[in-house]
Amino acid sequence: MPVVDKDRPSPDWIAALRKRFPIEKEIDRVLTRKMERRAGPGYSPMPLGTLIEGTESLIRSQFGGKCQLSDARWLSGGASKLQMAFVLDWDRPGQGRQKTPMVLRMEPAESIVETSRLREFQLIKAFEGTVPVPPVFWCDAEGQHLPYPALVYGFSEGVTKPSAAHSGVTGLGTHLPPELRGKLAPQFVECLAKIHTFDYRKADLSAFQIPEANSTQCAEWGVNWWTRVWEEDADEEVPLMRLAEAWLRRHMPVMDRAVTVHADYRLGNFLFTEHDARISAWLDWELGRIGDRHQDLAWTTTRAFGHLAEDGKTFLTCGLLPEAEFLDAYEKATGLKVDTNAVHWYKVYNDYMMATLLFATGYRIANGGKTHQDVLITWLMGIGNTLLEEMRTLIEEAP
């Protein structure tokens, strides 16, 4: 790896990376912004009043009626974004005067995953009425009103796990009782089917580009995305990452059709109401893209998100149902076939992405004091070697 001061990258070096790794325009814009601002100050705790003022400015710029913000408070949770809860007293279009609980979701100085608030906003907005999502109201895509780019969305009722259950970070290790699994599993498959068969051309997804069908362009954009992030953020060589990149490029799958991809579809990223076990909202759309459905299937069937059933033998995908049943139900719900080779490729791809975020970006933002979650990010880095070992095994076992 050439000697480069990545904490103060030169314009020429940034330009060279952009040319070397062509990706979607909006992702390129976000990553370029990150590098151009890297020499700036790190994260420092900001007064809640700063976010209140910025949120009020954002709302005034996009909503013409009278409104009042109250009960502002910090929200805990989330490894990548700052969140503030508040209540807005306003004349909601079509619904009259009401007090609506809302959340401001804003980036820190640098996040463990740099994504576009505009893309996140557009995806959630597009799926209103198709799958359960929280209502989204406004987006400050460039950070014109707030210290950093942000969006405002509404609260949705529900929990990510039963009240009496225990889980690890981001919902890992959650065990659901059999009766609850039986109610949630069909909805889990149904929602993914609706996401993958959604007619995205009828929605405002202007921040997205569509990869060419019957080509490897989708896979190439993805590998370029995470290899560029590795080059931007890594401070030391990891030979297996270079081998994995070469393997991914050598075996890129052909995408037969473009679909909307959630990119983090799993247990822990949806809310459900406990009294009737109904999925009430799908969360964390920030990595979503238009691409290959097998990316979601590979992510959802990752063993880290599941566990063994009560018999101690049957592995449950996302703790809900056996993988074979999940894939069979998916094919019936979508009419789309599952290419097991493509799923295997995307399992390697997903590990490559996560290893990049942990070993490269996670290290850099924690070491540089760029995030409010430096302790959590440092803890997450500890699972990086497990990911590398899984990635190595997948490459060796590849068909």
Rank of each mutant, 00 (worst) to 15 (best):
V136F: 03
Q144F: 03
I290F: 05
E331Y: 00
M241V: 15
D328Q: 14
S111G: 08
W230T: 11
T334K: 01
Q122H: 04
A234R: 08
Q62K: 13
Q373I: 10
D296V: 14
N350P: 00
L243F: 03
N385A: 10
L17V: 13
L118R: 04
A342R: 10
R29I: 11
C318F: 08
K183G: 10
G77Y: 08
R20E: 15
A324Q: 12
I124E: 01
Y200V: 09
P45W: 09
A85P: 09
V113S: 05
E120Y: 02
S163A: 15
E236N: 01
V348Q: 02
G54T: 02
R303V: 13
R18Q: 15
K161P: 00
G291Q: 08
H145G: 04
H307Q: 10
R38T: 10
L146I: 03
L387Q: 09
Y352K: 06
W226I: 12
G143M: 05
T273M: 04
L69Y: 03
Q83E: 07
P2H: 07
S163P: 09
S163K: 15
R364L: 15
R119M: 14
G335R: 03
S215R: 09
V189Y: 03
E36K: 06
M102Y: 05
P9W: 05
R29V: 07
W345L: 08
L75D: 01
R278L: 10
G129V: 07
F270W: 09
L48W: 01
